[in-house]
């Protein structure tokens, strides 16, 4: 089980802050593609990802128990 967090526009598009999925072992990019396809999220390719609060690369693997956050372009400051 991995925990997926959504923020900002992405959170509104999917209609929830988080979800748990049985996708341990998948790469960040494959998880993005799966979420985009199954939840109709058109902006996943413009989204960064962080695994356990560290920015991740698209080919990083999400392991059992990890928390992955999808981070749309940030606009703080």
């Amino acid at each position: 089980m991995i925990k997926v967090l959504f923020f900002a526009r992405l959170q509104e598009e999917i209609g929830k802050e988080s979800m748990e999925v049985e996708k341990a072992g998948v790469s960040v990019s494959d998880l993005k593609k799966w979420l985009a396809a199954t939840h109709h999220l058109p902006h996943m390719t413009q989204t960064m990802a962080a695994i356990n609060e560290n920015y991740a690369n698209d080919d990083d693997i999400v392991n059992e128990g990890d928390t992955i956050a999808f981070i749309p372009p940030v606009s703080g400051g």
């Binding site: 923020f7 526009r9 920015y55 956050a69 606009s75 703080g76």
Partner: peptide, 10 residues
């Protein structure tokens, strides 16, 4: 901050 800090403005 504008590059890496996960904060969003609506």
């Amino acid at each position: 901050i504008k590059e890496i800090v996960p904060i969003w403005k609506k």
